[in-house]
Simulated assay, not measured.
Amino acid sequence: MTDLAPQAAPQSAAESVADAGAGRSRWSAEEWRRRVELAACYRLIARYGLTDLVYTHISARVPGRHDQFLINGYGLLFEEITASSLVKIDLEGKPVEDSNWDVNPAGFTIHSAVHQVRHDAECVVHTHTVAGMAVAAQQEGLLPLNQMSMQFHGRLAYHDYEGIALDLDERGRLQRDLGDQPCMILRNHGLLTVGSSVAEGFSLMYYLNKACELQVAALAGGRPVTLPAPEVCAHAAAQFDVGTPTAGQLEWRALLRRLDREEPDYKS
């Protein structure tokens, strides 16, 4: 399911990655670290099957800036993305440095909407997973069917579908509907998470999608389901705050160790 077809065939992935050797000296140490983190996130989204070929996006704010963010080049598979291949753009979607890649206009609309107003949004993750799109099409949205879904109790916004996100006027409505929540279901579309770090953005998406997978499985069983009382859901959500105060950092460090062993080129 695509957002928009590329306007032109960009340089091949192999050619783009070949330019990486000179990349590290082009950016500050802080930006390079952010690029490495974001490239790792793309690789992990691919590894866990949360991709839609070359579509959907993960963005990260350029350190020290509220008007620039990094995003994937339009046409790269997530498994190909490296720290140096990420594209730096401003809040109007214009590149702020030379790149071999264009940016998907629909991806720019959604991510720039968040980065414009949420200065806590260091990372924004958007996916089109089967489970996420399935729950996005269900009238009741995400149900508190299990402990994993209760993590999102009271922390999940909803945005009605308006078509492919090419209309910049939609940004205001996305901002209104998201508010200060960390996660949003884009109805009839997919999932979106907002992290105070790249690690948190990934962790929220991994578990939000897992909650959607569990809901699809439970409802497919064809038997009545049980829903805990609202006060139990609120209690469980509060327990997640106490029990997981690291905002995804614990699992993130473990996942980076795996990437360093198996896909170290993400750092190039």
Rank of each mutant, 00 (worst) to 15 (best):
S59C: 07
E262Y: 04
R43F: 00
L191D: 04
I164H: 12
V135P: 07
P10Y: 10
A83Q: 06
K94R: 15
L186N: 11
G201M: 01
R223L: 13
H159Q: 12
R34H: 09
D241H: 03
E162C: 06
M184I: 13
G75E: 11
H119R: 15
P264G: 06
H57N: 14
P10G: 00
H128M: 05
R34S: 05
S203R: 09
Q147P: 04
L178K: 12
R26C: 12
V96Q: 08
M205P: 08
R33M: 03
G190S: 03
P230D: 11
L44C: 06
S28R: 10
R257H: 08
D265K: 09
E92L: 08
Y158R: 12
Y161P: 10
S268H: 11
L50W: 06
A13E: 05
P95V: 11
H66A: 15
A247S: 14
G221Q: 14
F202A: 00
I110M: 09
I71R: 00
L214Y: 07
G23A: 12
G248P: 06
A121S: 05
E122W: 02
G49S: 12
D67C: 11
T127H: 03
M1E: 14
A199L: 02
E231Q: 12
N104V: 03
P144T: 05
V135Q: 01
A22N: 13
Q138F: 14
F78S: 02
H111G: 08
G107S: 10
Q249A: 14
L186M: 15
A131G: 03
P230C: 12
Q151N: 13
A106Q: 06
C183L: 03
S12G: 10
L166I: 11
D260T: 02
D160P: 05
H235P: 03
V130Q: 09
Q7M: 13
R223M: 10
L44A: 02
T193E: 02
T127N: 01
T127Q: 01
E79I: 06
A5S: 14
V54L: 07
I81A: 00
N209D: 15
V96A: 04
A8W: 13
H115K: 02
V117I: 09
R258N: 03
L76C: 11
H235D: 10
V54Y: 08
A220M: 09
I81R: 04
I164V: 15
E262D: 10
D260L: 07
G248D: 01
I110K: 06
Y266T: 01
W32C: 02
D177H: 15
G49K: 09
R155F: 00
A211G: 04
A106G: 10
H119Y: 08
L91T: 10
A217E: 14
F202S: 03
H111V: 06
L250R: 04
G201A: 04
H126M: 03
L91A: 12
G21Q: 15
N188D: 14
H153T: 12
A46F: 11
M150P: 05
H189W: 08
Y48I: 07
V87R: 02
